[in-house]
Design a binder for these strands. Structure first.
Lengths: 206, 206
DNA sequence: ACTATAATGGCACTCGGTGCAGAAAAACAC
DNA sequence: GTGTTTTTCTGCACCGAGTGCCATTATAGT
């Protein structure tokens, strides 16, 4: 969740060599415009390259695939999530820590909210992107699993941390689905509600 | 989880027209052999078609994509999951119902265990298949969500049923990952362990 | 033998993605 | 300014997945 665009591949001033003509962020923005307006499948990579003012071949040097364009800079946000979790004091119970991290991670400035919504509509709505997102989520889950493992004195790839990471992902994505389906809802409220189920479990329901 | 091969597109005897020369199940079996032996990316669709003794064009009439071949007949198993859930008596608490369904759904006859393992190794290990699987999981989640919604007197697409469905999926997949990583583990035991976290929540851990 | 039906198979085409080699821009040295 | 080095951009040829179209082949029934 919460991908977006950041600086990324910008050559330092003072370095030799030709300057990049554009940026990953700009390409992603242009592409999302096209995808939203004309549909993802209906928009070819050439269309995006043309709109971005670069050659097709160049586009594939900024992004490894058409799917990846829609995500923009995700690695940057992964680092943010990692920082968020490590900054939480060890006194905080693990369920509360995850709840707070989920909320902070998915908070977006009001100015970016509309754009964020458009992007997430694509990522969670277009089948090809739903599928591709699985690969992004895997990295995100790993970050959560590392935190849980550390807290529980286990290894990253142990069963329990991985299970919790999956559940956190589910909590976030279920909230996003609701939020996208109904613009009147508040994403943060949904995440808080979901975190309750995450913390208290399914047996607390019946 | 737990895909496999079933009859699927077999023309009824007594019908006019040419008989199918093979079956979805057979194609999937042949393909998994190739994928496992030579790698998924390294194996072309033509390779699979040749090994199955049919034309490339014909292969795409059995399966809509290369990715789908690895899954075999999933819809059949979806129906099984649906039946499993509806057969559980309403007196059973929801957490217990989900636990039992997860266990039954993922139980495989010992004779098929080795093949199942090979298939799941591909599905959960190859990036392209991990991604594609997301689309299968979506249908599976929907089945679980429908059950939860009915139990809780809510709509299929309400927040809570969808959240629970996501968590169930996570429980199953985390168990599978562990099982594949270490052949000595028992899948059912892992699912039972995961179901505990699902039922009791994360706050029960610290 | 003739007809209707359903599956197979070949061909050409689109599109996503890659390897390669050369052109273009920028910094620096002289 | 000329030349060198570094980095990016671009065009081209190529591969593999997936599709539309149409002819071909096999089966059942008359």
């Amino acid at each position: 969740m919460t991908p977006s665009d950041a600086p990324a591949p910008l050559t330092q001033t003072g370095q030799p060599g030709r300057r990049p003509v554009t940026s990953r962020a700009q390409i992603s923005a242009v592409a999302i415009d096209l995808f939203t307006a004309n549909g993802f499948e209906e928009t070819s990579v050439d269309d995006v390259a043309d709109a971005a003012g670069i050659a097709r071949r160049t586009l594939f040097r900024y992004y490894p695939s058409k799917n990846a364009i829609a995500w923009g800079d995700f690695d940057g946000h992964l680092d943010a999530m990692r920082a968020l979790l490590t900054d939480i004091p060890p006194t905080e119970p693990i369920a509360e820590a995850l709840r707070r991290a989920l909320i902070s991670f998915n908070r977006v400035p009001p100015a970016e909210l509309a754009g964020h919504r458009r992007r997430m509509t694509l990522l969670l709505g277009v089948p090809a992107l739903q599928a591709h997102s699985m690969l992004m989520y895997a990295e995100w889950r790993q970050v959560v699993a590392e935190f849980c493992a550390q807290r529980l004195g286990l290894s990253d790839d142990d069963h329990l941390p991985q299970t919790i990471a999956w559940m956190c992902l589910g909590t976030a994505l279920a909230a996003y689905d609701q939020w996208l389906a109904d613009p009147a809802t508040d994403l943060e409220t949904l995440i808080i509600t979901g975190s309750r189920t995450l913390a208290e479990g399914v047996s607390a329901l019946s």
